[in-house]
Simulated scan of single mutants.
Amino acid sequence: MFETTRFEARRRLRGTGILAVGLSLYSAFIVWYFTVWEGADIEAMFEEDVPPAMIEAFGIEALGTIEGFLGGQIYTFLWLLGLGIYFAYAGAGLVANDIEQGRMDILGVFPISRARLLGEKFSALLVPMLGLNLVVGIVIYGLVFAIGESIDPVHLTLVHVLSIPYFLVCASLGMLLSVVVDRGSIAERAAIGLLFLFWLGESVVSGSGDFSWLAYLSPTQYYEPTPIVIDGTFDPVDSVILLGAFVALQALGILLFKRRDL
């Protein structure tokens, strides 16, 4: 049982470890950088030099606090955009790469349904999703404590836990591309472009009158890390919407995978 999941999960362990180290080092730099700016009026400087659209896009808020600084420099830029793109990219390689390299022909002879095969391959992505959230969350909490600052552990936990439905949607979008495209490289590039367009489009059209409704088509609309890490503000409905989108994308992906020629 779940042999495919175990095999795929083991393949992702090394990459997850390397990525966790890289993200932890970047987080350490950002926390140190906060100490360099401590005492300066960072918010006034950003409001003077950075366009309002950029401030909105990067979740810049309360930069004079460690929570606001982490929200803008790590959780909006790195977590929302960077890891969102990473999981879309990872999902885009699930099927298309195996088809392109001929591995799917071997997997197809096993006594396992296509729905289960796709589900087990996708579930291996929980290794980096859970591992990165756990490791980096603990590292950030320790770094903040080390510089003599404090951060609410509940808010920090929430910003990591609530990222998982968002990552599931990102990975599912990539998986859908992987099912309908034959070449892995094309599916992966399309996934990167799609997530970036979602983030950029949501930032541009949000609050723009007649076109503001377009923002609700983007998964980035339903995960706002900066308010969560600052004061724990979030709407549970957003997570429900993301989970609903995840289920719908999975169902569509399975349906298309069942019908396609391998």
Rank of each mutant, 00 (worst) to 15 (best):
E3D: 11
T4P: 00
R11L: 12
R11W: 04
T16E: 09
L19D: 00
S24I: 08
Y26V: 15
Y33S: 13
V36N: 06
G39H: 01
M45E: 12
E47T: 12
M54W: 12
F58V: 03
G59P: 06
G59A: 05
E61V: 09
A62D: 15
F69L: 03
L70G: 02
G71M: 10
T76P: 00
L78S: 11
L78K: 06
G82T: 11
F87M: 13
Y89H: 12
Y89M: 11
G91P: 08
A92K: 02
V95H: 01
N97I: 10
I99R: 13
Q101M: 08
R103K: 10
R103C: 03
P111S: 09
P111H: 07
A124C: 06
V127I: 09
M129R: 09
L130A: 12
L134E: 05
V135Y: 02
G137W: 06
I140R: 02
A146N: 11
S150D: 05
I151N: 00
I151D: 00
H155E: 14
A171Y: 05
M175N: 00
M175S: 02
L177I: 11
G184L: 03
G184V: 01
I186W: 01
A187D: 00
E188K: 15
A190F: 07
F198L: 09
G201Q: 05
S203P: 10
G209S: 11
D210T: 15
L214D: 09
A215L: 08
L217R: 01
P225F: 09
P225V: 05
T226Q: 03
T226I: 14
I228Y: 05
T233F: 07
T233H: 06
V237Y: 11
D238R: 00
L242G: 02
L243F: 12
G244D: 14
F246C: 13
V247L: 15
A248R: 04
L249G: 14
L256W: 10
R259K: 14
